[in-house]
Amino acid sequence: MRDVAFGQYFPGSSLVHRLDPRAKILMFIAYIVIIFCTFNYAALGITTAFTALFLILSGISPKFYFKSLKVIIFIVIFTSLLNLFYGSGAPIWQWWIFRITPNGIHRAVFVTVRIICLILASSCLTFTTSPTELTDAIERLMKPLKAVRFPVHEIAMMMSLALRFVPTLLEETDKIMQAQKARGADMESGNLFKRVKALIPILIPLFVSAFRRAYDVATAMECRCYRGGAGRTRMKQIHLAARDVIAFVTLALVIGGVIVCNSLMSGVL
């Protein structure tokens, strides 16, 4: 339970940590678009290099990035195998229904690199941005939607509350599991039905305590006169700085590079 590296935040003061969270989110969205718009190896190389640059600048041990990749290793293998066998064109190797074509190999390489880059980049985002910063940034970015009466502040508040309770509930789950194991609850053996049933002694206390905590938080917020988002100011203002501009320029260069590569060279997919 405690070994979940994906989505964790590691406090630090690296360049990536200090970037404006809004800039990071916008760059991440643009990044997702360009990684799927790479059609030859040069373009793929540029985006991969860009990813690597960010990972190095984040100053976080590669070990944690590897850990976040572990979770998706099966998806990567599965999708790359599917792509490998479903390529079009003349086969270079064939056995029964399995046929491998140059196109299939290219596809497999591209899908593998793309998924890995995506996971690494999103890990980089969550490793270097605290949940509070993330929700603040989302709230600021969605502000224009207020014009159409979209409850931006409420949604951001719900998000930050939910994120706030993830570690608490994980810890609570751990405690309850220990306590039930101490009473001889058997969670490791038996068939599927038995295992699902074995979850009841954990889920019920967990729900009870989640509700209790929710009430506590609601009371605490009311005690502090929380009345929703209207007229609220922030203690920590986020400002765009020179480094954010530089980051945007770098990203623009990468996008330009990808477009140039795509148009000058022939695609392999």
Binding site: E172, I176, A182, G184
Partner: peptide, 14 residues
């Protein structure tokens, strides 16, 4: 675990 019984802190939550 049956031979060494363990009562945790705040056991009412279990």
């Amino acid at each position: 675990r049956f031979k060494v019984g363990m009562v945790f802190q705040y056991p009412e939550y279990q």
